[in-house]
Amino acid sequence: MSAHGERTFGDVVLRVDDVSLSFGGVQALANISFEVRDGQVLAIIGPNGAGKSSMLNVINGFYHPQQGTITYKGETRRQMKPHHAARQGVARTFQNIALFKGMSTLDNIMTGRNTKMHKNLFWQALHMGPARKEELEHREFVENIIDFLEIEHIRKTPVGRLPYGLQKRVELGRALAAEPELLLLDEPMAGMNLEEKEDMSRYVLDVNDEFGTTIVLIEHDMGVVMDISDHVVVLDYGRKLADGSPDEVRTNQLVIDAYLGVAHD
């Protein structure tokens, strides 16, 4: 059951079609296809090494699949490129937190505005004129995100010094700063305690509700997954096992076998 109750979604924003990816002899993804609809929260689940992170890396262009296509906002591509993806409204967080450790929370989130700032190099180098005004506008936007995520108290702290849970929140903030249309979250709640997980779940749902952001997330905590997602894709050994609503997936025999193990006779 979804926390949102009955929900309706828009058109397909992202379609992954028959994607295969291998590293040398290791098949990370094999003929994966699925769709994400506008406004949906889609969870990708599966045991360790199932290819979940690889899937996100294909979507935002870090990995280039050997086969298949990715259709994003009506445009079909063999592969995405990271900074194009960013410009097209795809933002993401990482499993192992990839923040700019030497920079403050504020500066980290400001980098998320990177694709939104356009004033030319000349004004920027002088730090005056239109570039300065632009900087201030973006600063305001970022302050709103900081309020939203309740991290005012660590605005000026270098993120390398923050505890893990807060770093995850800052990373989410940086992704939100890009005003993403598609947000990819790689294990946003890994390593968190119950309270932190609840906070993070609330932020994810709020983002989805308030801004209509489409979200694809990877998560291990089944309670969380069943609570917040509208749709679940299950991967195992690079193959897709199931694809459906949380309830359908929960009762799927293949999924149960993959998670609990099955006796082979």
């Binding site: 935002n60 870090f62 990271p82 900074h83 993806a85 960013a86 410009r87 933002a91 993401r92 990482f94 990839a98 923040l99 700019f100 450790k101 030497g102 920079m103 500066d107 400001m110 980098t111 998320g112 505005r113 990177n114 694709t115 700032m117 190099l121 920027q124 180098a125 730090h127 570039a131 900087e135 940086r174 992704a175 890009a178």
Partner: peptide
Amino acid sequence: TRIGRALRAVADDHQAALSVG
């Protein structure tokens, strides 16, 4: 400036820098 921040970001983490465009 934005570019200065981007420079520092690249120095800190290539992959994260790419992900924010």
